[in-house]
Write a protein that binds this DNA or RNA. Sequence first.
DNA 1: TTAAAATACATAAGTCTTTTATGTATAATA
DNA 2: TATTATACATAAAAGACTTATGTATTTTAA
Lengths: 113, 113
Amino acid sequence: MIYSSELIKGTLKTIVLKLLADNKKMYGYEITQRVKELTLDKIQITEGALYPTLHALEADGLVTTQAEYIGKRVRKYYTLSPTGKSKAKEKVSELADFMDTMRFLLDIKPTTA
Amino acid sequence: MIYSSELIKGTLKTIVLKLLADNKKMYGYEITQRVKELTLDKIQITEGALYPTLHALEADGLVTTQAEYIGKRVRKYYTLSPTGKSKAKEKVSELADFMDTMRFLLDIKPTTA
DNA sequence: TTAAAATACATAAGTCTTTTATGTATAATA
DNA sequence: TATTATACATAAAAGACTTATGTATTTTAA
């Protein structure tokens, strides 16, 4: 099962920032694979969504990039800037708060976890 | 504080279906007010978003409508159809599942609730 | 050994949902 | 009696993502 795409909307930036906050540096393809793994294939980030998002984060000064060559193929690593780090915390806690509100609003019982 | 608008995206239909599932019949303006109340003003549904959504639910056969006159002013009540009822359950549980996945992915600790 | 799949980047047209703006009208309140 | 609240509606613009396409290298399987 894969979540309907509307649900993912608006959370992509938060996911990317959080992964970068936990991993120091990651490249685009790696991010798509990590999310796929961690969510047991339930969330699959498409490249068409990811790359523009990464470029926007860079344009906003939230990440910096370093190219690295693996053989002849280039890999573009992304790292959080200090601003990016605080933005990551901010976005994650906003999402956490939002999800609490949604659970209350929709009367969703907490999972035994 | 109001959540950044991207977060709300994709959840509006679910919110509307769930409120209708719990209340038998509601009208548009009432839905906006109820959500505002229940979320302590943190989620404010705009009319520009709500009415097209309600019309779409009707077009999809998930709700039926009855007009009611309060004085000279019309109120349009929405009621879930049988299809709408099962759709409501489906959407709410999908969202619950999605939020669990997100909490795991973003390492968000459960709130003491 | 070579065709297919995986890795790795990128962009652009189209779609969908929501925002923002606007419009109409009645009822209640200050 | 002017303002705010109630109550509907639509339409242009914005924004985020999907879908499609393109390029190229490396690995795997037939």
